[in-house]
Design a protein around this nucleic acid. Structure first.
Lengths: 202, 202
DNA sequence: AAAAATACATACCGGTCGGTATGTGTATTA
DNA sequence: TAATACACATACCGACCGGTATGTATTTTT
């Protein structure tokens, strides 16, 4: 039987990635020490350097296997699967201020990473650009579909609008990070929703 | 004569702050070591700990004396002083993709700092919230003024719109950081400009 | 001019960092 | 079942970090 399991290498690898994600989400990639990740995962350095080349390689895995699906599952796929993409988008934007204070303070892991490590090397940059591009492309396609279905104004430019919406969304969750009171956040969301509703046909 | 100068404490202090700003702007607050700042300023640790309590205190000075005026001078005051605030805002948004690649990659120092250290302690958070609030208040007032002058639609809600614009702007410069090609950035800007122009009276 | 305060420079410390070398138990292969 | 490859744990390293203690030249005060 070649199917018997080893110690559990896959599970260990996922434990590492998940622990790294949590730490990175809280403190950022660079300030997060391997020791903190290992303490959370209850493993030692041997595990890290068996499964990954180095800390950066672990960071790549965190992006590919957690952050990327995280963003897609929250912001790309639900809008794509919705009959009315604009309605789904508005609903999700409205839901942002309802998050817990801790969740708001943590922010979007993609946005955090962009602002932190985009200046370092190309490994992260390429990944982030790829995800952002996929996001824009998908949203543009969904807006176009909305136009065909009559729930998005015909004179809306899908690509430009999609790109702007993505940027505004990252700006929104970024602004939310330091906001101690939700008032400013709610105002921002209202402004955002107002814009999105202006994309509706008259 | 009590006016004769000492070694030049004020100039030294400014050298420190300016060097710290440059390093922080490039690599962020936490990853920036005091040694790098001191090498750039051609000073030693004695200078830092004479003028500042610690690294965080130096960071506060960087925010108060460089970043805060930087944002106000670039995005708050020019719009406030313009006869047509919306026109000035649009012009400045359009100018973003014309920046140098290096400048784009560095991003907005305020936005960088928000995403990095808003989760740490209240010192930075309070400063950033204060600046963001001042920004929103001023822009809202300028939009209101635009409404009185007839260059902004009457049904625009100034406070909400201002808050959204601020967030979208931070999102824009954030998105620009990893962008290797300017195409996506230009699309984002076009979408942004389209939104701003929709605030014009019909 | 002597004394005191200021404005730094130099040397050093404990702690933490990413990374490596090596040891060892476990699972797979032969 | 013996040999081998795998999946970690342990111990350790040099580099760097923020911070401190102290020395000293320069101003300012008296």
């Amino acid at each position: 039987m070649t199917k018997t399991r080893r110690k559990a290498p896959d599970a260990t690898r996922k434990r590492l990635i998940q622990a790294a994600f949590s730490e990175i989400h809280e403190k950022g990639f660079q300030p997060t020490g391997l020791d903190k990740i290992l303490a959370r995962a209850k493993l030692t350095k041997g595990a890290v350097y068996h499964h990954f080349k180095n800390k950066t390689d672990l960071g790549y895995a965190v992006f590919d296997e957690v952050i990327d699906p995280w963003v897609r599952g929250r912001w790309i796929e639900p809008i794509h699967e919705a009959a009315d993409p604009l309605k789904e988008l508005i609903a999700r934007v409205k839901a942002v201020p309802k998050r817990s204070g801790k969740e708001l303070a943590l922010g979007c892991p993609l946005n955090n990473l962009i602002l932190e490590v985009s200046g370092l090397e190309s490994g992260f940059r390429d990944r982030m650009n790829g995800l952002l591009d996929a996001w824009r492309v998908q949203l543009a396609a969904d807006l176009k579909r909305g136009q065909r279905d009559g729930c998005v104004r015909a004179d809306v430019r899908p690509a430009e609008t999609a790109a702007f919406v993505v940027a505004a969304l990252e700006g929104l969750v970024g602004i939310a990070k330091p906001a101690s009171d939700v008032k400013a956040l709610k105002q921002t969301v209202n402004g955002f929703v107002g814009y999105l509703q202006s994309l509706r046909p008259a």
